[in-house]
Amino acid sequence: MALARWPYDDLFRLFSGQAGPAPRETAGVFPPVNLYDDGSVFLVRTEIPGMDKTSIEVTTAGDQLTIRGERVVAPAEPGASYHRRECDGGQFRRTVTLPQPVDAEAIEATYKNGVLEVRLPRVPERKPRKIAVA
């Protein structure tokens, strides 16, 4: 299963003010993702070059974001001989869990220069409200 959870230990360190350089590790599932935060929006960024934009599927359910697709590497013309072959084709499916609830209606995804960016606004915090007693 391509399910990965954010390391809450690291988030804890971050929020407790002990954040050093962000951890670099891979969940072992393609594509590797980076998660950023600007205070009101989460940004999930992943490098998947050579994709047909229409074949990238981005879905959310609750606090989970799933990116799936298939990368097709066009074969060389007949008669060509390969010197190097390092670019992978195939299917992928990656699910990430966001640290806080997001507004599903306001999520935006863009694909440019082989980089997929998904912006997920947080659910606006409910302000404390004083209720008048009638």
Partner: peptide, 18 residues
Amino acid sequence: VDIYETADALTLMAEVPG
């Protein structure tokens, strides 16, 4: 990269996202 050769040319495809 992928690199392949035909009778007329070498073709190099490099992944440079971003």
